[in-house]
């Protein structure tokens, strides 16, 4: 069955680039995009089956990434969905906080399209059934 991804990002340039990169890598991966945290939580509620991975921006209006993470960890059916943080920030405090909130990986938004593609490719290659535990802190931030 085809993978399905969620992307929550308020920046439409980033959504466009993400979609372009994903399409170049895979034609049949399902991508659902949300424009902020509130939109994400609403769309998650309606989506069946649940996505394999959520790419989550941190700095968003209405409901930010931290709040979404916290909320998902509260709701039983969302608790197990892997979350990949996708942020412009490389602030240690942001990295630390999202790690403690149980995100699986942290990607600092790449500056070239090729690197963006490699990042998505790497996430697509993960067999999440083997990744039921959070990776160690050293492996949490992915470098491109």
């Amino acid at each position: 069955m085809a993978q399905s991804f969620f992307l929550a990002d308020d920046d439409d340039d980033d959504r466009l680039l993400f979609e372009d990169a994903l399409r170049e890598l895979s034609a049949d991966t399902n991508l659902i995009m949300a424009t902020d945290g509130v939109d994400l939580m609403e769309k998650l509620e309606e989506t069946v089956p649940l996505p394999c991975v959520i790419f989550l921006d941190i700095n968003m209006p209405r409901k930010n990434g931290f709040e979404c993470l916290a909320e998902m960890r509260q709701i039983e059916k969302f608790r197990a969905i892997p979350v990949v943080i996708f942020s412009t920030s490389n602030e240690e405090s942001t990295i630390e906080r999202t790690y403690r909130q149980g995100a699986s990986f942290y990607i600092h938004k790449p500056r070239t399209f090729d690197k963006l593609k490699s990042a998505i490719r790497q996430i697509m290659a993960i067999d999440w059934s083997l990744h039921t535990v959070q990776p160690s802190k050293e492996k949490y931030v992915l470098q491109f």
């Binding site: 340039d13 680039l17 372009d20 412009t88 938004k109 790449p110 500056r111």
Partner: peptide, 9 residues
Amino acid sequence: RKIQTFATR
């Protein structure tokens, strides 16, 4: 970052 990314595109 976007300027750089779009330029590479």
